[in-house]
């Protein structure tokens, strides 16, 4: 839950979520609209720089968090570049399958663009995730008119994740204190017990939570107000200017 910790403690915590959201959204659309891989790579760099230098997320942590999605993207884009029907760059021949594996020029171009776009988009979202707490993102989505049911689910699910983790941690600690993970066999048994126990506790907790809401007048709709944030004209202008420029560039630059 490292992302969560940074979301609450970064330098831009008090910045209006709308401003950060706008910036991320512009980065996202510009990345996806771009027809040349150059711009999205640039956006990825801008997002990384803003997150590290602006919001003050330690660069090591940032790399760790960004590495996993990047590797994942690399692998998936590699698949785009590979061709079985004869490309320009010959790789291997597998006689048994009567297939040659090669890379095609067109495939490489596609893969490069796809990689750039997804990387730009991913780092834009990572910027938002690392600078803005979940409840504020939900609040933002809510003010943008996201369906109520979705917002309610996000609010409750997010809170319950932590309650759930705590319960699981408690049960696990109790088992461990009694050497429940001493051997693989015992560990399997303990794990089964843990799972069953969590299920039972979750059920009784769900009932308690429902009571908790009813007791304060819950009536089929989760009504609440989010804390108010003040817009900063300077940030807003910066976000809009950079964002619009990126999007215009995305539309203008030809491959």
């Amino acid at each position: 839950m490292r992302i969560d910790t940074y979301a609450y403690s970064n330098r831009w915590r008090q910045v209006h979520p709308g401003e950060k959201g706008l910036f991320a959204l512009f980065g996202l659309t510009a990345s996806l609209l771009s027809k040349s891989p150059l711009l999205p790579f640039g956006i990825a760099a801008v997002m990384a720089a803003t997150t590290i230098l602006g919001a003050g997320i330690p660069w090591r942590e940032y790399l760790r968090l960004a590495l996993f999605p990047t590797l994942f993207l690399l692998w998936s884009c590699l698949a785009l570049a590979v061709s079985f029907s004869g490309g320009e760059f010959y790789l291997v021949n597998i006689p048994a399958l009567k297939a040659t594996i090669s890379l095609s020029r067109q495939g490489i171009g596609q893969a490069e663009l796809a990689l750039a776009r997804s990387l730009g988009a991913t780092l834009s979202l990572l910027f938002l995730a690392l600078t803005t707490p979940m409840t504020e993102i939900t609040g933002l989505l809510r003010s943008l008119g996201t369906p109520k049911l979705l917002i309610e689910l996000m609010t409750i699910a997010y809170r319950q994740i932590f309650v759930f983790l705590e319960i699981a941690g408690q049960i696990r600690a109790a088992q461990e204190a009694r050497l429940g993970y001493a051997s693989v066999r015992i560990a399997m048994k303990s794990l089964a017990g843990l799972t069953g126990n969590i299920l039972l506790r979750s059920l009784s907790r769900a009932r308690q939570n429902h009571h908790g809401l009813l007791a304060r007048g819950y009536d089929s709709e989760l009504l609440f107000l989010s804390p108010r944030h003040t817009w900063s004209l300077r940030n807003l202008i910066a976000a809009v200017t950079i964002g619009t420029t990126l999007n215009v560039l995305a539309l203008v630059i030809r491959p």
Partner: peptide
């Protein structure tokens, strides 16, 4: 007004501001 024994069964939001606004809003 009812205050439950276990706070986790009462606090539904990760933001206490949102949580506290819940009751008065329902009225």
């Amino acid at each position: 007004g009812m205050v439950f024994q276990d706070p986790d069964s009462q606090l539904f939001s990760a933001c206490i501001y949102e949580d506290i606004s819940f009751g008065p809003f329902n009225i």
